[in-house]
């Protein structure tokens, strides 16, 4: 059992990563109450097993691993293999926009609302969503993401690649549906 002072120091450090865990839990559960339950359970478990945390290693990745494992064990109940992402093919939004004559391509991104990006992320299967959250949103290295997810770095890279392809596909579909991009239309991005 850790000394009280050491335990407090551990809890203080762990709580500096609360926003990362909460954001991750929110994106995984889609429910603020469920996210809080999940994060609270993760912190209690972290405190109980703090002896297994190795000083000097990435505490944020360690905490995220505890939280996402709880999610998969208790909240989801599904086998991870059942929720993987089908291969959407080699969809590259940049090239698609170029094909559609939308120039400059980056202007399209400026017109996509943040809520639509969040919706596109939320549509990703959880196994792919969590790697986007770690690498793109929280800035984890591939190595730290691999530690948090308990998979090899190669798996992080392949999931990230597929997730980004799916994300780009969703954003392109939104851009077309909302008139930001007009397939076969004028060469300028709509000024909506």
């Amino acid at each position: 059992m850790a000394e009280p002072a050491a335990e407090t120091a551990f809890a203080d450090e762990a709580l500096t990563h609360l926003d990362t865990l909460y954001r991750g839990a929110l994106r995984l559960t889609h429910d603020p109450d469920a996210a809080q339950d999940l994060v609270q359970e993760a912190y209690l478990r972290a405190l109980r097993y703090q002896h297994s945390y190795q000083q000097g290693t990435n505490m944020k990745a360690w905490l995220f691993a505890i939280m996402r494992n709880l999610f998969w064990d208790r909240f989801k109940g599904a086998r991870k293999e059942d929720v993987s992402l089908d291969d959407v093919g080699d969809f590259v939004l940049f090239e698609k926009l170029r094909d559609e004559g939308a120039r400059p391509e980056s202007d399209v991104l400026d017109k996509i609302a943040a809520s639509e990006v969040v919706a596109a992320v939320d549509k990703l299967p959880p196994l792919h969503r969590e790697v986007v959250l770690l690498v793109d949103v929280e800035g984890f290295s591939y190595k730290d993401a691999a530690q948090a997810l308990g998979v090899p770095i190669g798996t992080v890279m392949s999931r990230l690649h597929r997730a980004r392809q799916q994300l780009q596909k969703s954003l392109f579909e939104y851009a077309v549906e909302s008139g930001i991009v007009r397939p076969g239309g004028p060469t300028q991005v709509s000024q909506a």
């Binding site: 969040v118 992320v121 949103v137």
Partner: peptide, 21 residues
């Protein structure tokens, strides 16, 4: 490359607004 960077920033800024209450 600039497009990919832009997209990565867009995903980050869209998703990192939520903070724990």
């Amino acid at each position: 490359y600039e497009f990919q960077e832009h997209l990565k920033r867009l995903v980050k800024h869209s998703c990192d607004c939520d903070v724990a209450p």
